[in-house]
């Protein structure tokens, strides 16, 4: 059985394989679909919705939607880009993101995405929720102010570290990342060498004492916009 076929993204025909998601196929073809919760080493869960594309007229999250022969996908259209921008804005206003004081600045995927979208300020009013900061772990800081509930840490701990340090608790606007300990992160078996420590796209989980080893200005997204690595595959 021939398991490769063609799909179309924004009018461009690309190769796809059975079992790939739309995002996999697009990545391989050098087409960047913006994303936050998705990570190449983790099972996709489609929670941030930034990768929303239109497939045969219907919205789908590219990170979870499997490709099918002949699929026609809209990715880079004004309407889709506007929806994505709105979602990025929502993430900024639901937390407390002070980029200029954040250790993750320059390495932060949310910040980088905002720059890529030309966002200088969110269009929605800040909600200024009260969030906790958990500094109980000797080597790791957990700052809920910057959490976007992408659950990368939940998955990394389970899928890559063989642990179960994190899980979502609560619901709705009060949903947050909980830890598998009596009270705080220091009560868990989390280790600084865990993949879950470095997989956070924002500044919610950060290693202590190394925040400024790489100076601002020389960080990942100071050099090239987010997504450039994918687009470079087929320049």
């Amino acid at each position: 059985m021939n398991d490769t076929f063609k799909i179309t993204i924004d009018g461009k025909e690309i190769e796809a394989r059975q079992g790939q998601t739309i995002m996999d196929a697009a990545d391989a073809a050098g087409i960047y679909i913006p994303r936050l919760c998705s990570h190449p080493d983790l099972k996709p869960i489609g929670s941030c919705r930034v990768c929303t594309v239109v497939v045969d007229g219907r919205p789908q999250a590219a990170c979870v939607k499997p490709v099918m022969d002949g699929m026609v996908i809209e990715n880079d259209t004004p309407a889709v880009l506007q929806h994505r921008r709105n979602i990025i804005d929502m993430m900024f206003v639901e937390g407390n993101h002070f980029c200029m004081f954040c250790e993750k600045s320059g390495n932060c995927e949310l910040q980088a995405l905002a720059y890529r979208f030309g966002i200088t300020a969110p269009q929605y009013p800040f909600q200024f929720p009260e969030k906790e900061v958990d500094g109980s772990h000797p080597d790791i800081l957990l700052d809920h102010n910057r959490c976007i509930m992408c659950a990368r840490c939940v998955r990394a701990s389970q899928e890559l570290d063989g642990k179960n340090v994190f899980q979502s608790i609560g619901r709705g606007f009060h949903r947050k990342i909980g830890v598998n300990g009596e009270k705080e992160l220091g009560d868990t078996d989390m280790a600084v060498s865990d993949r879950a420590t470095e997989i956070c796209p924002v500044g919610c989980i950060i290693k202590k004492r190394v925040g400024y080893e790489v100076p601002i200005g020389q960080r990942i997204y100071d050099k090239a916009p987010i997504g450039s690595d994918i687009e470079e595959v087929h320049p």
């Binding site: 979602i87 929502m90 993430m91 509930m149 709705g172």
Partner: peptide, 12 residues
Amino acid sequence: ESCGYCVPCRVG
């Protein structure tokens, strides 16, 4: 009643 899993429903 939103479960809060995805951004648009949780925040929007």
